[in-house]
Design a protein around this nucleic acid. Structure first.
Length: 279
DNA sequence: GTCCAGGATCGGA
DNA sequence: TCCGATCATGGA
């Protein structure tokens, strides 16, 4: 990997593991990236960046080169050997091979734990367009303004001070008390998100589901999308259908330590090709 | 108008 | 331990 700085752009060349931004940013692991004219606009690390591909190179605008090296390379998971992992998974399931072809080069992002946790609490029994809307309103109303219409995700300290009435504006319904209760537990230190990062996965699972409104599915999402525990396997209604109909013996153990990556390909592939589940 | 959404919780069998 | 009703809201 090599970094070139020109004006406000940083060009990342010689990336060993090709990343497809559309598949990575629209496969259901994140909710805040927006595509405008073939470029993606998003916020993390209190930076509002634009990212796009030029051939195999990745271009990041509005960041400084040190942040790109330290934060964004990790965020987009550019150092993990996805070729090796896909090969490891390649003889497990024929639909997975179709998914590789149909939606290639998905990377599992390294997202910030609080944003991921809160976002997936909002996601429960909800549809993706509305999830995005609720999260957007949450940021507009309680985040920091970074530029024109771009707001940071509000941190848990701010949210722990909010009341139910304050959140009525975001229309998160029955999930509101879960959000507030979780923000409270993290603020008081009852749950430490930094500690969970270093825990063994089963220990981390146990800790996360102690949060009110966090069950096995949301827990797996946080483990995979922000703690990068690649064996985590979020089992939502779609993946239940996939496991039920498309996986031999309905056994996800075949995916081993990279189950989460198999899950991400299958999830996105099946949501774009729902007819496969009708077979 | 009806059905359903990247679920979790609770009460009752 | 298991199962179904329920939760708030609006997208499709």
């Amino acid at each position: 990997m090599n970094f070139l700085e020109l004006q406000n752009k940083i060009l990342i060349t010689e990336i060993k593991n090709d990343i497809n931004l559309e598949n990575t940013l629209e496969c259901g692991q994140c909710f805040r990236w927006k595509k405008i004219n073939n470029k993606y606009h998003g916020i993390a690390n209190n930076e509002n960046i634009t990212v796009y591909k030029k051939n195999k190179d990745l271009i990041i605008e509005n960041s400084n080169i040190n942040n790109v090296k330290n934060f964004w390379v990790n965020y987009f998971d550019l150092n993990l050997d996805y070729t090796k992992i896909k090969k490891y998974l390649s003889n497990t399931n024929t639909y997975l091979l179709q998914a590789y072809e149909s939606c290639p080069d998905i990377h599992i992002l390294n997202q910030e734990p609080w944003e991921t946790l809160c976002s997936f609490i909002i996601s429960q029994n909800n549809n993706i367009p509305r999830i995005k809307k609720i999260i957007s309103k949450l940021c507009e109303n309680f985040g920091y303004k970074l530029s024109n219409n771009n707001f940071s995700f509000p941190d848990y300290k701010i949210m722990s001070q909010l009341k139910k009435k304050d959140l009525e504006i975001i229309k998160s319904g029955f999930r509101t008390r879960y959000i507030l209760n979780t923000a409270e537990k993290i603020s008081t230190g009852e749950i430490n998100l930094e500690e969970i990062k270093n825990m063994e996965i089963n220990q981390a699972r146990k800790k996360l589901v102690t949060l009110n409104g966090v069950g096995p599915k949301i827990s797996e999402c946080v483990l995979l999308y922000s703690y990068h525990k690649l064996e985590a396997f979020p089992m939502d209604i779609w993946m239940k259908k996939v496991v039920d109909k498309l996986i031999a013996n309905k056994d996800i153990k075949i995916f081993g330590k990279y189950a989460g990556i198999a899950q991400q390909y299958l999830y996105y592939y099946i949501r774009k090709n729902k007819h496969i589940l009708e077979l």
